[in-house]
Design a protein around this nucleic acid. Structure first.
Lengths: 210, 210, 210, 210
DNA sequence: AATGAATGAGTTTTCATTCAT
DNA sequence: GATGAATGAAAACTCATTCAT
């Protein structure tokens, strides 16, 4: 549906599967370091070292430091899609919606570090990459928007159409908040509690059954 | 209550009112530049120039670049306190709560740039400054927590105590989101719509009257 | 007459006379090193060190390494103009022409190193700087073209107009050759011999009196 | 006569004819790239790619990047010799001399790119290779020196012996100038015009018949 | 013989900070 | 108090060359 204009990161390596492998290592190393010290305070040399290859090798697989950040962000959406794909068969029930939220919040929990990094550093992406990432973000919000619309259609929920978009945003945002506000919540809540409470807060007003 | 351990930014200038004046110029310049290019991409030279004095003078009023970021963040909370102070006289009514939310969201709207900067760059603060800023954040959440507790006490709302903290966070977060998600919402909502809808979403579950 | 489109090299230093002074030092250092090892084999650090200031200071007075090369080339033409200016009062006599040639060849002799560097490295200039330098070169050829034309007008020499341009080029080239072929000639000729012989070779055909 | 100390470029390949073949491809690619971007701005990877083989293969046929430049220069003299050989049977006539000049200038015209590259980049050769190339250059000047001496002997021209060497240099230089000053002349002259005019300028003084 | 992934020394450039005037 | 020239550590990125396959 979307033009799927995948912003390619060029590599001078020919072996595609090797690129795949090295970039996975790269992303892992980068996430770890970015999380610790942020994008700007992390040097390419550190990334290379942490990933287990030389600075020269690093630059065989990317063009610029910003490429690394992009790879990290892109990878998250790849994962998101992989995990949320099955939920796309919306059945128009509240239960389906709740299940999707569940899936998504658990995803955020599993990818905390990556999410945090993307959240805090994406503004450092080059313009085109930032646009691409925002597209993905909107896509994700759209996913929940659709789920909500289905529920609306089937009469399971009641909500002015204008508010659906906002609510979808809110759902996504609350999910991400689990990653970037964990300094505040980690000690007090478990992810399951968090999901339950957020679901209640967000959906209470539109559905009496909860 | 809090130790109010104001992290001081040292200056070699004696004249306090001059410090005040220069720092105000400094903060303005910094916010403008940080918003445009981010903390790391902005140079101290640029800040000095934009603020209207020389690089040498800049360093008469701060010790390090990070001090500038700290001044920006600190200033926000100063402003927040100034504007929310009157609301502290909680009367334990839902209306008082809603009024406080209103005040806060409008504050975010007025200080969009500052909020955005603080939100995106605070991780670049030195450890002690970051802690101070987080303290402030918690303080702010605490403010709404108290309002909610008052309402609970007076019986105006019903909510398990555990969820109060989360809801307070949620209120603050949704407010900030108006600043850092404005790329998504600006075209579709006005601040008043946003406030109304968010209030509804967040408070609907706990209060039937809305 | 020409648009005198001086390609400026930006500096972040405000004191103009200091710029002048430092750049003179810079040019001296650069010429020495470029002559020895060529533009590409010379590092900016070496240039700074040889010039007697730090790498940071170097970059306060230029923007890029190529700027240095440009300053070197530009400086040559400045010198050329300074020394050849008086000759511009062409009197249309062969003697005037010969005197100009004399002046020019001595100039080349005095600025051997600079000439050599400009000659061998100018292709490394950025496009706009190269164009500027070529303009200067053409200007210089034009100077001798005019002198020849004056002589033609006054009837002192006889030459098809088409050949005047070529001869002017040849005069300039032979002059430069004294710099870039000195490995071949230095041992055998003195500059005065060289001038005498070249003048004879080049002008013999157009003027019987020599 | 000369020690003919051919500076060998080592290869790990046994098959001589293969070496020959690959090196020809190599030289072609290198000339094209050096002409465009200069020796230093051209990477070995680019050369290999343009020549049609891998970087690994490239290094089977040379030892260092400078070897490539040397091969290019050496190849020029090979060609020069091939084409000027027949002219060596000097007959001591002006016509023989003029014919040789003709041959040489046409050679320069045919090998413009190679000439230009050699001219502009030879200073990047390693010391021993540079010496070898200069030897070749002197050899070439010597060729014209001999032609001039023959003419002197046969009484066809009159010139102090001392000036013969200079004139020989001048002839060679003017020929090369057709290559490295083509930005100035290409639009105005054809090679034939150029030859005619240069011959006139250079030989006019020593021979009345022209 | 051919390939191309890996290497790391070396290069240009930036920028926070200092300090003499 | 104000200025701005000087500094140099540190960072991103390149590329000739090697060597295992």
């Amino acid at each position: 549906m979307a033009k799927e204009q995948k912003r390619l990161v060029l590599s001078s390596i020919k072996d595609e599967s090797l690129i795949e492998k090295r970039r996975t290592e790269l992303i892992h190393a980068a996430v770890r370091l970015f999380k610790e010290k942020g994008f700007h305070r992390t040097t390419t040399r550190e990334i290379a070292k942490t990933a287990g290859f030389s600075i020269g090798t690093l630059y065989e697989y990317i063009r610029t430091k910003e490429d690394i950040l992009y790879l990290v962000c892109d990878n998250i959406y790849l994962e998101v899609r992989k995990r949320l794909e099955p939920e796309k068969q919306h059945d128009g029930t509240i239960d389906g919606l709740i299940k999707a939220i569940h899936q998504y919040y658990h995803l955020v929990d599993d990818m905390q570090d990556e999410m945090l990094v993307m959240y805090q550093e994406s503004k450092s992406l080059p313009k085109d990459a930032l646009e691409y990432v925002l597209t993905k973000e909107i896509e994700m919000v759209g996913l929940f928007e659709n789920l909500l619309l289905e529920c609306l259609k089937s009469g399971e929920i009641q909500l002015p159409k204008k508010e659906i978009k906002l609510l979808a945003h809110q759902i996504v945002l609350s999910g991400q908040a689990w990653a970037f506000r964990r300094w505040a919540w980690r000690k007090e809540f478990k992810i399951e509690d968090y999901i339950k409470m957020q679901t209640k807060i967000l959906l209470n007003g539109i559905y009496y059954k909860i």
